[in-house]
Design a protein around this nucleic acid. Structure first.
Lengths: 352, 352
DNA sequence: TGTTAGCACTCGTTCTTCCTGAGTGCTAAT
DNA sequence: ATTAGCACTCAGGAAGAACGAGTGCTAACA
């Protein structure tokens, strides 16, 4: 790969050095000097030569110095180039592969559990933070609706989706409505709304169903406001975190003043929005300021997606320092998202 | 209060000084010296006198020095004495009172939501971390059980409790069992298990119900293992955190090496066990090493409980540094737990 | 006898100063 | 084109000085 002319300006040796330097910096977290590069067995030329090359790479914007006489550190452009052209996926040891597969063999029944396990594996094997966006609630389709009366005034409204997800909320039941009414209402809803995506529930209710209800049910008005209130799906995403505290172990975040804003951003809604705005297929990497979001300028975000039956279901993300073990994370996130997809489809296959 | 002889060994002036010193240290987080105490308006005697008194208090074990010539800091014994004898509950400003009451007026429908709001208020108004243990699932009683078929092989089992809580799990349905069977099973379960506490479900199933099932249902064996698996309530507690990151702002946890173990403990199961082991009524304070749990030696834990209809429901806890604003936290936790109880009982009252 | 002023002493903190070592760029020789 | 050599830079650590907030103790005082 190195022998091809990838970028018109860079010689093979420069490519080689850039790759070496990034690899080195990723593990050491210290600026890399010419001497330490020259010490490597596979480097035949002298520190002086390396200095010349590194100076050129710096001039072209791939490297930076932390101060006038320091070693070099990759710039964002450098990372970007590395990620785009110099990266070869990491290999996992048999041990690790075994452990990962093992974790999936435990239980493949519940979607949520599967996602949670995936997040945990990702964060534990990368030592960074994993964030998973679950299947979008709004895209799920209604499988069954049910009302269970708790007492004179309250009932639980239960919505089961085609994926087996269960939403529920407590609703106040007006005195004017009795058990028979409720049964009637629920029957109508189940009849008319079967397999309707949740985001359409409300509009369908008001368009098609209100008429039917008016005919068959007493106190039609109250029922409608009740249903309107409870069929609003407010929380559009399920979010699973794992390894939030892993960030604290990274040398770039030893300073408490950096940790607090970072953790705040990590848990904040903006990050989720950012994640949702990522392209919805394939693997994507955002390095440092490529994330428009404030507070994670020193972080990189790697995302991919998982799906079932070809349908986009959710997002898998790893966030870590810019100085990230990209090859390893890429391999892991790719593997894990495929395993997740695979397991979800295994469930699905049973269906038909 | 000060004029009574509370502790045979301590003079009124010593009590006064101890109280002053703790109050001061709680806000400043710096060892308190004789001079700074003497500066206060309500202190009429000189630094030298204060030094003598503080030396006595130190001898008796209520105070400590961080080094030979430093100011004094309360010892755990000092905090304990302060908490037991010197504390007067803090007053909240009308503004704060208003805000708190306002937060509760929003929605009083869902138990979980109510608990979550309470945790948020506590952490925001104390600037420490709030942990709430929700109603013990196992104590809840079964209100309704339901199975919704998702596809050929899977169904969702839904358990609704008397409190409106909904548990659900995906179960695999053996081919030998059809929709009619399921309906029969569910009807039997609803009939026999109504208002049975969740922790009894399994034993009741095996004792009383297995016989009935054997008579009415095909493939009795598979059904029993299926039910046995899914009626095991694994997660005995609902836990709500709020303000986990507030700890990071405390001066005693500026050091990253202290933060990591602290956050780990905070999220760990041992702490929850510790919380559950607290006496189940009234307000309780554990200072520093009084918590047997490793990792929170420098923290204090204040807990109380909330209930509905006189029945113990769950635990409210605030964890912060030993150097905690005890009066304020006590006032807040007390107030908030009462508001929570009140609101829960308001729901309850509707029932009868 | 309890209180206080005075004083010597301790020790953490901060500010310098100095030194070292790892790094650089540049120049001249190979 | 490469490299040895050299002067230069700069972060980081060590050593020391000065500071100041605190102490305990003693002696004087009301």
């Amino acid at each position: 790969m190195l022998t091809e002319v990838i970028h018109e300006m860079l010689t093979d040796r420069q490519l080689f050095l850039l790759q070496l330097l990034v690899n080195d910096y990723v593990v050491s977290a210290e600026p890399v000097g010419s001497r330490s590069i020259a010490k490597r067995e596979d480097v035949t030329f002298s520190p002086a030569t390396i200095r010349n090359e590194l100076a050129d790479l710096e001039e072209m914007g791939y490297l930076e110095k932390t101060h006038l006489s320091s070693g070099r550190v990759p710039s964002e452009k450098g990372y970007r180039f590395y990620v785009d052209h110099l990266l070869s996926p990491a290999l996992l040891s048999d041990d690790e592969l075994g452990n990962i597969r093992h974790a999936y063999h435990e239980r493949l029944s519940e979607t949520e559990e599967l996602i949670r396990v995936t997040a945990k594996i990702l964060s534990e094997f990368t030592n960074y933070t994993a964030i998973m966006l679950g299947p979008e609630l709004l895209e799920m389709k209604l499988k069954h609706i049910q009302m269970v009366k708790l007492n004179q005034n309250q009932a639980v409204l239960i919505i089961v989706t085609d994926t087996g997800h269960v939403e529920n909320r407590v609703v106040a039941i007006p005195k004017s409505i009795n058990a028979d009414d409720i049964e009637k209402i629920v029957n109508i809803l189940n009849d008319k709304l079967n397999m309707v995506p949740l985001y359409q529930l409300q509009s369908r209710l008001n368009a098609e169903i209100s008429g039917v209800l008016r005919e068959h049910v007493r106190d039609y008005k109250r029922v409608m406001t009740l249903l309107n209130n409870s069929l609003t799906i407010s929380d559009p995403e399920q979010i699973f975190y794992s390894g939030k505290n892993n960030m604290l172990a990274q040398p770039e975040f030893q300073d408490v003043d950096k940790i607090i804003p970072l953790l705040d951003v990590l848990e904040g809604k903006e990050l989720i929005r950012e994640l949702m705005s990522m392209p919805s297929n394939g693997l994507h990497i955002r390095i440092g300021r490529e994330n428009k979001l404030n507070g994670i300028e020193d972080c990189s975000l790697i995302t991919t997606t998982y799906s079932v039956g070809g349908e986009h279901l959710g997002t898998v993300a790893v966030i870590g320092p810019k100085r990230m073990a990209y090859p390893r994370v890429i391999t892991l996130i790719d593997m894990v998202s495929k395993l997740l997809t695979e397991n979800l489809n295994k469930q699905e296959r049973h269906d038909r």
